[in-house]
């Protein structure tokens, strides 16, 4: 757990970067610090490994005040990933990843074999080991950056805009791999980004900062989307937050209609009972826009209902057999009921 206790950072010249910040980043979870530029999120991150020294207040990692520890030793125990990866241009990929183990006194052989394993883990084949950073694409460099941060198996990782220098398609892939990696590793991660979508997608917890180093809201992505504390957070989270908040609920409770026909449109099944498509008034079969299972999100169901040729989403079981149908207006009724139920819970 990383604890901020009433932390203040005032830069020489008087500008306040961080203003009385208190928060707790839970162990084994990823907490994303997000906000507009100049909001103090990066300063807050860099105070954790003492790259920036707070003016007042304390920062503790698992109850230990970071200011009491030797800087270099502290940092060797904290992984650090930054925007352009910050790889050492004069070292091969393998030696970049082996850096911290070597600093910690491991032999070159141990460090290199550990580095080799990590490269594989972040999805780089062995042929990359001997290359220099300049020979890699941005996305590959970023993977090496992540591998390098993980090399000493630190319990805590700091990530400063780690994915913002790569193009959206590559970023999407890195996100996926990173979430998978984090699921295995369960590191305590603090990550900075200016991209609220990234924060909501990756974070277990999200800390929204506003200009002047104030923490505006700290909560789960769902809390942020459904109950922004003020106009600033609501606006920062974005206009379509209602739709996006549907990502966090599964379709398990969503009632379905029996498989059959609607308004002259009929769901055609194959011999095994799997949906083939819709047939309207005896015409040709139009494919369904896709199907969902009870594990999928409400957002996905909504999307299916909108894109389906007849406005109906099809639920299937694990075996792929059609189980039931959800119509537009059934969905709207369900969401309205859900909203009322949530409001009642909140006021109770």
């Amino acid at each position: 757990m990383i604890t901020f206790e009433d932390v203040v950072k005032v830069y020489p010249g008087g500008s306040t970067a961080v203003d009385h910040l208190s928060m707790e980043l839970p162990t084994g979870k990823m907490t994303v610090l997000v906000g507009p530029s100049g909001c103090g999120k990066t300063t807050s991150l860099r105070m954790i490994n003492r790259m920036v020294i707070p003016t007042s207040g304390r920062i503790l990692i698992d109850g230990k005040d970071v200011s009491g520890q030797d800087e270099a030793v502290l940092r060797r125990g904290i992984g650090y990933v930054i925007q352009h990866a910050g790889l050492f241009p004069h070292r091969t990929v393998l030696d970049n990843v082996a850096t911290v183990p070597l600093l910690l006194g491991k032999t070159r052989r141990e460090a290199r074999s550990a580095a080799m394993e990590l490269l594989e883990r972040v999805g780089l084949s062995a042929e990359f080991a001997k290359r220099y950073p300049a020979q890699l694409s941005g996305g590959q460099q970023q993977r090496v950056g992540v591998a390098r941060a993980l090399a000493a198996d630190p319990p805590v990782m700091l990530m400063d805009e780690p994915f913002s220098a790569v193009d959206p398609v590559v970023r999407e892939g890195l996100h996926r791999e990173f979430l998978r990696l984090q699921q295995d590793l369960g590191k305590t991660i603090a990550m900075v980004t200016h991209d609220i979508d990234e924060a909501i997608k990756l974070g277990d917890m999200v800390a929204v900062f506003r200009q002047g180093g104030h923490l505006a809201q700290f909560g789960t992505p769902q809390e942020l989307l459904e109950q922004p504390v003020d106009d600033f957070v609501a606006e920062f989270v974005g206009r379509d937050r209602g739709l996006r908040s549907l990502s966090f609920d599964t379709a398990a409770d969503l009632p379905v209609q029996p498989v059959g026909s609607f308004d002259g449109a009929e769901l055609v099944l194959d011999d095994a009972g799997r949906p083939l498509g819709w047939r309207r008034d005896g015409g040709t079969i139009e494919p369904t826009a896709g199907v969902f299972t009870t594990g999928d999100s409400l957002r996905m169901v909504t999307d299916l209902a909108i894109t389906s040729p007849v406005g109906v989403a099809v639920r299937v079981g694990a075996d792929g057999k059609a189980e039931g149908l959800v119509r537009h207006h059934d969905l709207v009724d369900f969401l309205a009921a859900r909203r009322d139920r949530r409001a009642a819970e909140r006021s109770a």
Partner: peptide, 8 residues
Amino acid sequence: QSATAMGY
């Protein structure tokens, strides 16, 4: 800076 952050 990344060298510093790694504990050099």
